[in-house]
Nucleic acid binder design. Sequence first.
DNA 1: TCTTAGCACTCAGGGGTAATGAGTGCTAAA
DNA 2: TTTAGCACTCATTACCCCTGAGTGCTAAGA
Lengths: 362, 362
Amino acid sequence: MELPERKRRILKAIVENYIDTAEPVGSKALADSFDTPISSATIRNEMSELEEMGYLEKPHVSAGRVPSFAAYRLYVNELMDRHRVATNELEAMRLMMESKMREIDNIVVSASKVIGEMTQHTAVSMISRKGGDRVKRCELIAVDSGSTYAAVLVTGSDVKNKMLRLASPVAPSTAAMLCTALNLAISENRLEYLLPSVAQSMGEDSQVYQMTSDILDFIRQTEAGSKPEVYIDGAARLLDNREYQDTGRAREVLEYFSDRSKVGELLESANGDPINVRIGPELQDPSMRDASLVFTSYQIDSNTRGIVGIIAPARMDYADVTAKLIAFTQTISGVMGRQRKQLKDAGETDERRTEDEEDGSR
Amino acid sequence: MELPERKRRILKAIVENYIDTAEPVGSKALADSFDTPISSATIRNEMSELEEMGYLEKPHVSAGRVPSFAAYRLYVNELMDRHRVATNELEAMRLMMESKMREIDNIVVSASKVIGEMTQHTAVSMISRKGGDRVKRCELIAVDSGSTYAAVLVTGSDVKNKMLRLASPVAPSTAAMLCTALNLAISENRLEYLLPSVAQSMGEDSQVYQMTSDILDFIRQTEAGSKPEVYIDGAARLLDNREYQDTGRAREVLEYFSDRSKVGELLESANGDPINVRIGPELQDPSMRDASLVFTSYQIDSNTRGIVGIIAPARMDYADVTAKLIAFTQTISGVMGRQRKQLKDAGETDERRTEDEEDGSR
DNA sequence: TCTTAGCACTCAGGGGTAATGAGTGCTAAA
DNA sequence: TTTAGCACTCATTACCCCTGAGTGCTAAGA
């Protein structure tokens, strides 16, 4: 069932040509582009067979051929040559990142900016935590004179806060007690008993009860990882592509983008592979039918990973995009490894940095 | 220099017709639309005078006339009749808001969603604090075993946090001391003396010094109000408009949107007027040359206000948009007033809610 | 003096037709 | 199995003409 060598070469050439020009490619032009001379007639024969096999499509009878989604799939899986990014580009990337990555909170933003800038496509980026965030500790801080409190949750690698507006003031000492009780319950993993016990001792319509219930909701929400923050950079760049010259199509995709949770869900499906590619229909959404998503993930800390990728027309330069994404994750784990190392060197040592693991799976 | 009555009526009709159809309006069609019969010839005469005065433009000699930016300006300032939104729409808005406004943190997001939905245009929204945020208090929380701290700042109406990664651990007791010192310095307004004194007692390369300096930077950043959060809803809706059928134009504007700080700056210029309107060139940005921004602000608390508006082609239904924005601010201050009232009723009473103030300025 | 009817003129947009040319499939010879 | 040749298809472009909406101007009417 393996495709014979010549067919592979022809298909590869067609895909690359189409990626380049966005125009159906014909037998004549293709024949000329080969160094070993093959006649256009031969190519025509091969083409019509490739068409039968489902790798090519004709927009209409007298145009050239266009790769099908199956062709793109084959191309990324087998045909494409994986090239490396030029060292000067790599250096530029490292510089961009060193300067932007100083603060962990905007690592997602920076990631999408950097990769968007590099590829000149629309970049998406998010942070995913293993099984949601585990809340480790909780603090209560009076903000207003009396009635407004902030609940601050400390999780694996982040701190979240929420304002609580209470109808009547709660004494700081009461709040401190509640805080202690909460932390005890968290550390003993018995959160579910807390609310009933508060109800018993303070009454169901006490302010403290209300406050506790709000905080528990917040904890639950945080641990469920309710809404992952998804960043999108350069959505407008999509309009540069021929396939989105038609405003109708463009609108569909931009609308899809505006629902971050959909995009987030897509990205969450990243598996351990160094590079994930979802082509056209594989994205399972009609508005994305002629786009592809190429993405990858990188480790931020033991249970947090970043996911970053680019969305562009199915006709995109997969080789280039893939190479840049790989370079990106390597650079970022380099940058973060260095930071981590710096941290450890000054204190004690207990973690080995894992970098440059090659994974030739599939 | 007042425009005579008939010219005003004609200009108004032209603007409204153009808003409606997006097509140059001609003398004949216009004549027919009047109840008091005027001949098309008369209208032609009036039109050519209006053109001389700079209120009308001809796309080309044999088309009708199109309003100039000056015409839109005149229209919003004097010609347009300010209509009210239908009560059922108002009710729908109130419902949408009641459900979405429960949490203050996403008031901006909800505001842009609601108003975007109502007008079917691109909505922008942000929060602006009077003279930046004043930091009132600060807390330090150890996150990791030793080396990672969170600084939590309490400001007028919000809480901000930032992770600090330190090279070596700082003892909790030291952190607590630093915290006390910080709060003292804040309350006495002598922040600038803190760093030198830490340097003196702990040494310039101590961890505490580093930490202090980081926190002070964060405080400064917060007080400068570095980056206001600007939300944009329904950017894709822009593509529905005839003037952005051309992808080039659309791209320009979408790119403009992606620079939130620019949009934020624009919105910051809201003055006390119930409604602000910036038409085309008044936006001072070439990519926005044929768009307009209509926006308004509403009070969130004593020194925080929200700003919300819509961005659409200069040819937009100003009367409708304006009415909806006004209805929005009234509804929101109603909703928030009720929340505030609820809060006070349960505790003490000290603030009167101000609602339904009519302001016929200008 | 203002308004209106009439008329000549302009010009974008629509529809039809023809020319162009890239590309195909098929056949027959190498 | 490959290649040259040939007839055929059909999207795209250019061209042209026509139509109709709209203008400006002039002269007559109120």
